[in-house]
Amino acid sequence: MSNHDLILSVPAPARPWRERLGSAMPLLVLGPSLVASFVYVFVFTGWTLYISISNSSLLPTYGLVGLDNYASLWANRRWNIAYNNLFLFSGFYIVGSMAVGLLLAILIDQRVRGEAAWRTIFLYPLAVSFIVTGTVWSWLYNPVDGIQAMVRGFGWTSFSFALASDRHYAIYAVIITGVWQASGFAMALFLAGLRSVDQDLVKAAQIDGASTFRIYRKVLLPTIAPIFLAVAVIQIQFAIKTFDLVAALTKGGPGISTTFPAIYVYDLMFQRGQIGEGAAAAIMMLAALAVVLVPYSFWVVWRRRKEAGHG
């Protein structure tokens, strides 16, 4: 092999500088982004990791304390509630928004009139910030002015709807709001997926005498299975990073019942001046994401390999 290279490699004629610049152009243009991304992904994460094992309090300092920050984090009841909330919220939020999104997509897929209008209605929350959504829903949940007040105004004076003010149920208020905001996005992706399925498949199933329900269950939904996974992964990211929604909706309350890791990190770092422990909490958030994303990315790589193998 190297023999060939020695014998056959031909000295390249000297190329003019313009041409050499031309062939380096892609790297020159890509370079800054690469450096920035590298710093953002690796240096920032490493940095925060380092702070999380340091004794930083009000300002970053670099005396190492090992895992003390993590220990005190996990010893804190509020953090445990936050972490539990994260899993509770993520589970319901993802399943809920996907279920509603899928239902809406299937409804719209029935050749309804005014499809564009329906789609726009269900999708517009995507354009609105969690802050706006959270603020408005906090009003609706408000027992004095919101839904409860409205129903009582109709004459049903014993009606009670105080989801967000009940420490046991406030987390569900957050979940409902999250699902409201996100299901349109799931709907859009599912609908696009349904539309991309080869219509011959559907025709074949119809000729086989399958009912609409069976066609969805046995033909369409299995075909768009990858979309389910993609939607789930996107939603999980939103779920784990959720800070705005809770900040605007419940501010973590009542009490500490709707604290989330994202809120907790913010409090530790900027309200209580415990930077080290805050960094530890941020790292735990990353860990929660990694638990989901690492297997997913392996799956994606595996699938791509398989496809390449077939191709």
Partner: peptide, 16 residues
Amino acid sequence: TSGEIRIDGRLVNSVA
């Protein structure tokens, strides 16, 4: 990778 390509006798291996 190796070998040569000539067009009109001119070596073009690394010509754009």
